[in-house]
Design a protein around this nucleic acid. Structure first.
Lengths: 357, 357
DNA sequence: GACCGGTATGTTAACCCTAACATCGGCACA
DNA sequence: TGTGCCGATGTTAGGGTTAACATACCGGTC
């Protein structure tokens, strides 16, 4: 059971009839080894199926070529896409990735996770957990010598970061709705946090405020389709609205459903706009207008940022990417509800009949 | 930049006025240390912010408490859920998880990834890549001393495995459709592989064959909603069908869309059944009948299996979990298309009008 | 008072590798 | 023939920890 890789440099050296150091040079492709020796060593290594022990290498080199990624709930779209992007970039640069999932976004939980990563001597950490600027700064202060990149914090947080400009994307979405002429708009907001600066909800409110508007109602969901469904039901029990801003596409799926159940047509009766642009969004009924966020690219960018810090040139400015508005068919100008609904049902009827000529 | 954790056991020992070994005992909570010494050491460690170097520990102990997870495309539902489940179980048992994403399921790619993990001295590996029994067996043979658990291989593959009984789930889905009275059924199959034993497609075909039926048509998709959409379009260009089996829910989203665009009502005109039960499935229009797979639990189970191997009692039987059929509203008995469509459109019209009473 | 068992602590040798220095032979040049 | 340089190789000393053994001390027993 133990004795996994009994084959060490010394074994290879013995077989090839050279010193350990020479084998090390060959394995690491260093110069100053004669061709003859090199092939002899290579053969010996192959023959013994030698696998270098990176633990020992790391200990000697004081460098592990491993980075840690701390993230919240991996079952959601964003974190899993992010993970994919980071892993890809890391692997390309010769790094391994240790992922650590924190059940909640508290400072304590993240600190704990980071400590475990430090014990494993990671060269740096990437942190995707939404933290207040104060918490992020505190955490950063606790790791003086560990390169780190934060994601999902606000742009003004004084830590190295790679971010999406969420507020900007949110403003895009809200402005689109107002441009269409909507005045009665409702929100399905992210869970937790009150309205803090630089969040999606904050962006929405800003745009509304610029038009002397306030949301008809705002209910928070838990990022899941079911959460979106419940939130939409709650909204539907309240005052009427013609436009709905949803904090992510997964919740929008639930919202679309709740609207449908109520007999409301999207976009004729209610315009809906999501956030993220998941692969299903383009194919929902109706196709969802949304704000596209490219998570894999963000992940890659964050890793590059970390690499820069490792190389010793920490770019102090946060790397922030602007999302993009994707217009599809879930948004339209507001209409008189009754006329719209009848129109629409008739159109559907016509289409059904036509389909079988 | 370097000199990350200059604080070592020796530093703590010096400050506390004891030997390294004593500090080691305190840090690892071993017995035979007096209470007085223990607190002195604890204080010294806290004062210096000592962080143990797990690299050194692992080297000395010949055990890293790290496991590797090799998986294909993390952006899909299954792998990301699986990762979450494994990480959770691993963390609970004091293990860290290194994830390695392989761009393709080839034996070479997986072998390469596993080798990198071996260099990092992981205690074991979990492999989620669909491989032929032969490939899996070959791979297993290449790692004689490394505990491993395979997922996404067929149950008869002679390797330690934790599996979902895909064929069984597929049979459940197909049988449901036939029980409803459908005879003209089409497939949207997984990408790649021809029909091999113990796959979803194989399960479907078995059930059909038992009723002397063959599929009207079978087109493969790429697991994505868009892929499902394209596949459904292709099917719609061919001979008519009243039931559609789709290899996963994400593709089903696209299929539902394609059907809708064609003016076909689900389930009146075409029954659709998916696979996986993603969080959105219950809220689609219509709610999708599907086969539920519990990936987080599978992940946890796989990890437990690995732990058992590490403990020295390798259960030779693969751990296989049976999925469950979830009936919602996307399946119904076949109807005369025209009657159904008209009925349905009228119902919709009525509902719309009623909604504003 | 010699002997025992047991606890608290220290010392030494690994674990596998790399960095830094040391050595050796050959070749070119004067 | 000596000098100097350089490429090829070897030797030694860590990197931070643990396992195994060694030592010192205490209280109790006959």
């Amino acid at each position: 059971m133990r004795a996994r890789t009994p084959v060490t440099l010394a074994d290879v050296a013995a077989l090839a009839g050279v010193s350990q150091q020479t084998v090390s040079r060959v394995v690491n492709n260093l110069p100053n080894v004669s061709a003859r020796t090199r092939t002899r060593v290579t053969q010996a290594a192959a023959q013994l199926d030698y696998v270098p022990n990176r633990l020992a290498t790391s200990l000697a080199r004081q460098r592990t070529f491993t980075v840690g990624f701390v993230t919240n709930d991996l079952s959601l779209h964003a974190p899993s896409q992010l993970t994919a992007g980071i892993e890809r970039a890391a692997r390309a640069a010769g790094y391994s990735l240790i992922v650590s999932i924190v059940p909640e976004d508290s400072l304590a939980a993240v600190t704990h996770a980071v400590r475990a990563l430090r014990e494993r001597q990671v060269d740096g950490v990437l942190i995707n957990a939404s933290m207040t600027p104060a918490d992020a700064a505190t955490l950063r202060r606790r790791l003086p010598d560990l390169p780190s990149v934060f994601m999902d914090v606000t742009p003004d947080t004084p830590v190295p970061a790679a971010l999406l400009d969420q507020e900007y994307g949110a403003r895009l979405a809200a402005r689109h709705l107002l441009d269409l002429g909507h005045t009665r708009v409702a929100f399905i907001t992210p869970p937790g946090q009150a309205v803090v600066e630089n969040t999606r909800e904050h962006g929405w409110r800003q745009v509304l405020a610029a038009h002397d508007l306030t949301p008809v109602a705002a209910v928070s969901g838990d990022w899941s389709p079911h959460g979106g469904y419940l939130a939409a039901q709650t909204l539907l029990a309240g005052p009427p609205f013609t436009a709905l801003l949803v904090a992510n596409d997964q919740m929008a799926v639930g919202a679309l459903r709740a609207l449908w159940e109520r007999g409301l047509n999207v976009p004729a009766d209610v315009s809906v706009i999501g956030y993220d642009d998941t692969p299903e969004s383009a194919l929902l009924i109706p196709p969802l207008s949304t704000v596209r966020q490219d998570f894999p690219t963000l992940g890659a960018r964050a890793f590059t940022h970390l690499l820069a810090q490792l190389a010793g040139d920490p770019p102090p400015t946060p790397v922030v990417t602007r999302p993009e508005l994707i217009l599809r068919s879930s948004t339209a100008p507001p209409q008189t509800p009754d006329r719209a609904a009848v129109q629409d049902a008739l159109a559907l009827l016509a289409r059904h009949l036509a389909a079988r000529g």
